[in-house]
């Protein structure tokens, strides 16, 4: 299968460039009693890596991803993204980091139903305000084309299927050419055919475009085919 061959490429990575680094992250909820969800998590992710995070339900994978994506800033420990420490940044600064450096893909596709597919893809770009509207529109269309769904560009977001939505969400995550893509069970709601399509897209992003991917998944087959699998148990990394 196409998926197998990426493993072999793992060895010949050029110089290692750290994209994201977590240093002893602790997180606990106080609801109603104190529960420690993440305990002393430390790891780094290098440029061009395709990393899967697996673990039993409730072990804290999503919680970790929300922290890594800067959406949750209530934790202890240090998070470095692109050699910048996230602690102490204001809400607006964190939003900018998220906008420019992180692409986020959810299990539930989360498109904005009020907008067309094309506009959905363009929105993070409009926020970044780095390219003109025409350029953005062009880029968005090219992304949709690469994902084979350019026909849907003018449809409203609620008019497309689940598998298509997930591909649109990938295009949206890519529009600002982020440093790292984070996904929380991106294939959790898809059938095996669509799962394969999404996996192929991810692989191409890593290999052809040297993107960095961090994917939380329950699909062991999916995880086995990535370059690196972080396994979590009870709030710790066990391998």
């Amino acid at each position: 299968m196409l998926l197998i061959q990426w493993k072999s490429l793992e060895g010949n990575k050029m110089e290692k460039q750290i994209v994201l680094e977590a240093k002893s992250i602790y997180k606990s909820f106080h609801d109603p009693v104190k529960i420690d969800v993440l305990k002393d998590l430390s790891f780094t992710i290098n440029r061009g890596e395709f990393v899967a995070i697996t673990g039993r339900s409730g072990c804290g994978k999503s919680t970790l991803l929300y922290i890594l994506s800067t959406m949750d800033s209530d934790y202890e420990g240090e998070l470095w993204i692109d050699h910048e420490l996230m602690a102490g940044k204001t809400e607006a600064e964190l939003a900018r980091v998220r906008n420019e450096k992180i692409g986020f893909i959810f299990q539930f596709h989360y498109l904005l139903n009020e907008f067309s597919v094309l506009k959905n893809v363009m929105l993070p770009g409009l926020k970044a305000n780095k390219l003109s509207e025409q350029e953005l529109e062009h880029n968005a269309y090219e992304l949709l084309k690469k994902l084979g769904i350019e026909k849907l560009a003018m449809k409203m977001a609620y008019q497309v299927s689940g598998g298509e939505k997930q591909r649109i969400a990938i295009a949206r995550a890519m529009i600002n050419d982020p440093l790292i893509l984070m996904c929380d069970e991106p294939t959790g709601n898809l059938d095996s055919k669509n799962t394969e399509i999404v996996f192929d897209i991810f692989s191409e992003l890593v290999n052809t475009f040297n993107k960095t991917l961090l994917v939380v998944t329950h699909d062991q087959n999916f995880a086995d085919n990535t370059q690196r699998n972080i396994i979590m148990e009870d709030g710790r990394i066990i391998s």
């Binding site: 607006a92 939003a95 900018r96 906008n99 986020f104 959810f106 904005l112 009020e114 926020k127 970044a128």
Partner: peptide
């Protein structure tokens, strides 16, 4: 709420 959450997840700040 969902729309607001997505906007924020994709990098819109509270001020936006």
């Amino acid at each position: 709420m969902d729309t607001i959450a997505i906007l924020k997840a994709t990098g819109f700040s509270g001020a936006d």
